[in-house]
């Protein structure tokens, strides 16, 4: 058991190292000079003043050091919990921007992933049981899962927001409101949350339902199901066993899909101008904001890694075969 988790942690550590390195590298490989665009924004006319400002900025962000020094510095800063200062929203620290955006992203991601997984599995299991349901749930699921996130998001924003005017189409809350811990603000928040959540939820739902239906059918044909039927066990017991065993590959699927779901959420946020990490990343790319981009990606990488680790732990708990494998079998 300890060796298993030791190995897992090592793999996660390596992944984290690689991810941070790539995160550091990618913004710096983008064309364009962030300091130049900051200077352009500052509208300083005199060449001497401009030069002084350039030196100041380059020194502030450490761009005057050799690249390997910059790379090591970024690791040092990371361990101090310092994400640097945003270039785009200068001089706001990146950490502040992130802590403002992350709750919105999590509020979208966690419910849409978990609820779509649970309901999708139930729906798939039901579809495997009844022909009528199978003939309706399956085609709908195929359409849903093949739908690109941003297309469904745009369609829903247009339909529910513009044509019917039921839900707001943009923002995390009304522009006329200031964030506060009051009921009206909370309701407003919820109202803005519905459409982005629903579009994420629907696309993910289809995939889980299809997966579950197929695995359940496979499980119901398996030897243990046949044996139980031959011994006259009621369908209820057999279905319970089949469902539980079919959930296992779905858990693995969840771990695999996590990254895709996060990417989908980022795109959806942009469609709805939702103030989460997705919108932040878009702004960072448009403004060549190295530090903000690095910080946002770091959050996502950390989130996906932690979620994967939790799934690993859950898997060990629910599938005895993994535990037995660790302890060694007895003859």
């Amino acid at each position: 058991m300890r060796r298993y988790f030791g190995r897992k942690l090592l793999v996660y550590g390596l992944t984290f190292f690689m991810a941070v390195t790539v995160n550091w590298l990618v913004p710096r490989l983008m064309p364009g000079d962030p300091v130049a665009s900051m200077l352009a924004r500052a509208r300083v006319a005199q060449p001497e003043a401009q030069e002084a400002l350039r030196v100041y900025y380059n020194n502030l962000f450490g761009f005057d050091q050799p690249w390997w020094q910059q790379y090591l510095n970024s690791w040092g800063a990371l361990f101090r919990g310092d994400f640097g200062i945003s270039l785009w929203a200068f001089p706001t620290p990146v950490a502040d921007l992130l802590t403002r955006a992350v709750p919105y992203s999590l509020a979208l991601l966690i419910p849409s992933i978990l609820i779509s997984w649970v309901i999708g599995n139930r729906l798939g299991a039901l579809a495997a049981r009844r022909k009528v349901l199978d003939n309706t749930v399956l085609p709908v699921s195929y359409v849903l899962t093949a739908t690109p996130y941003l297309w469904l998001a745009a369609l829903m924003a247009w339909g529910f927001g513009i044509v019917w005017g039921i839900f707001p189409v943009a923002g995390g809350y009304s522009f006329s409101m200031t964030p506060s811990f009051t009921w009206p603000f909370f309701v407003d928040l919820l109202w803005h949350w519905v459409l982005p959540f629903a579009s994420l939820f629907l696309v993910a739902l289809g995939g889980w339902a299809i997966g579950m239906r197929n695995v359940i059918i496979y499980e119901l044909e398996s030897d243990y199901a046949n044996y139980l039927s031959a011994l006259g066990a009621p369908q209820k017991l057999i279905r319970r066993y089949a469902f539980r065993n079919a959930v296992l590959p779905q858990i693995t699927g969840l771990a695999l899909q996590l990254g895709v779901l996060v990417a989908g959420a980022l795109v959806t946020e942009i469609v709805f101008s939702y103030p989460g990490l997705g919108s932040l990343i878009l702004a960072a790319i448009q403004n060549k904001d190295f530090f903000l981009l690095q910080g946002a990606f770091l959050f996502i990488v950390l989130g996906v890694l932690i979620a994967n680790f939790i799934i690993d732990v859950i898997y060990v708990i629910v599938d005895p075969r993994t535990r037995v494998g660790m302890a060694g079998a007895s003859a």
């Binding site: 030897d223 243990y224 066993y241 065993n245």
Partner: peptide, 9 residues
């Protein structure tokens, strides 16, 4: 199929 007749989980 005795080898696989019992629920593995």
């Amino acid at each position: 199929y005795s080898m696989s007749a019992m629920n593995p989980t």
